[in-house]
Design a protein around this nucleic acid. Structure first.
Lengths: 231, 231
DNA sequence: TTCTCAAATGAACAAATGTTTATAGACCGG
DNA sequence: CCGGTCTATAAACATTTGTTCATTTGAGAA
């Protein structure tokens, strides 16, 4: 099976390496471009120029602009899910929520385009949105729901309330990177800098760990209130 | 000054009305389109089709696609600022924060494109972003800073921390509408429906009114901590 | 060096883009 | 019904768009 003639093997290996390199360069450039203007707003030649290849070269690796766009998202999502499932395994320890927050924020600060890609896809209601919902957002939701069911409270709430709490977490982490350019133009500190990310991370940590039980309590009251009103 | 010949006046009035009507129809269609795909991703003909006018008609009212885009944003921002300044006037009563939240959320649910426009402009770092920062985001920041300075605590924090708290509010209100399509694909309830908006409004109210003093306390500790570490 | 073959390219294509211009249409006072 | 004036249109323009294809380049094997 592995007895490919050596001459060919080494040759193919070298070529495969080169090919992989350009493919990656194109994918990186595409990520940056798509994260700024979205699928419809990005020009193929612009990606090519940024990747320093001819416009036609791009089509040696990806059959279409749309396919390239999907490739960008397909590469971006798994690591995000990985962070969650990693902590889901050992989630019995009490500090786990704090750790997830830090891990997510650190990952996002290393790949600041991800948040923007997700927001753009959501806002424009693109073709990829269903996949995004099922492969990325639903797992987050499940994780947070499980977390709260176990630790926070004996009472249980509608699915929707959990979903909104999961969304709250997303708003504060992913949203921070999506809105960063606006915040940057308003204050002096760069929200994407180490200091900025650290500050936001602490804010989320404080909110989630220390205050969420209270939030649950109060939400319970709200819910009972509105159940009363319903009668 | 007002003695314009009557014949002309009535004629002009009727025509002005018609013109204003089409101009508004174009502006509305443009708002929807730009809120989905942003400036670069939106096609002029697409706006024209949605407004049910010929592509050329559009240029009788707006000199360029870019100008039309700016007109959309110029119309959207003032009401947002108005909500704030309205409550800023009578902000001594204790329930004011709660009222601002409700007012903002209600306004956004009536004009759900606004959030998306803002997020798109921020993400793509468009030409309008500086104006957005100074005319919309900075006032919010000032308002919230003032609020906290007066009521919350004797200690004071860096400008940046206040900014991030203002941003927190924006994430949860505006971000809710921007991310709504994703949330909608993940759960059953439509986040933009009356029930959905009400739920999110309560979440924010609970968070801000009941929990923010504690958040400030804890943030103060964090700050002192990091000041200690700095030495 | 020469040969081979995948990788990269320049030139070309039809369709779509933002915008302009010359013409037709609608409204209203006479 | 007429004539003027503003509004709306169809057709056209140059450029840019996504994509294809025939050709050239370049690195490794002989």
């Amino acid at each position: 099976m592995s007895d490919i003639p050596n001459e060919f093997a080494t040759r193919d290996l070298a070529q495969a390496k080169r090919a992989a390199f350009t493919a990656a360069r194109i994918l990186d450039a595409a990520e940056v471009a798509f994260a700024r203007r979205g699928l419809a707003g990005t020009r193929v030649r612009e990606i090519a120029r940024a990747a320093d290849v001819n416009g036609a070269t791009l089509y040696n690796y990806y059959p279409s602009k749309h396919a390239l766009y999907e490739a960008v998202l397909e590469r971006g999502i798994p690591p995000l899910s990985a962070i969650l499932s990693e902590f889901a395994a050992a989630s019995n320890e009490s500090e786990s929520a704090r750790h997830v927050v830090r891990a997510v924020m650190q990952h996002l600060s290393e790949r600041p385009h991800l948040s923007k890609l997700i927001y753009l896809e959501a806002i424009s209601e693109g073709d990829f949105l269903p996949k995004l919902a099922h492969r990325w957002f639903r797992p987050i939701l499940e994780q947070i729901m499980g977390e709260f069911r176990v630790r926070a409270t004996p009472a249980h709430f509608d699915e929707e309330l959990y979903a909104y709490m999961a969304a709250l977490f997303v708003h504060l982490s992913f949203g921070h990177f999506a809105l960063a350019p606006l915040l940057a133009k308003t204050i002096d500190e760069d929200p994407i800098s180490l200091a900025g990310v650290e500050r936001q991370t602490r804010l989320i940590e404080t909110l989630l760990e220390q205050l969420f039980p209270r939030l649950l309590e109060s939400a319970k009251e709200d819910q009972e209130e509105s159940e009363l009103q319903r009668e």
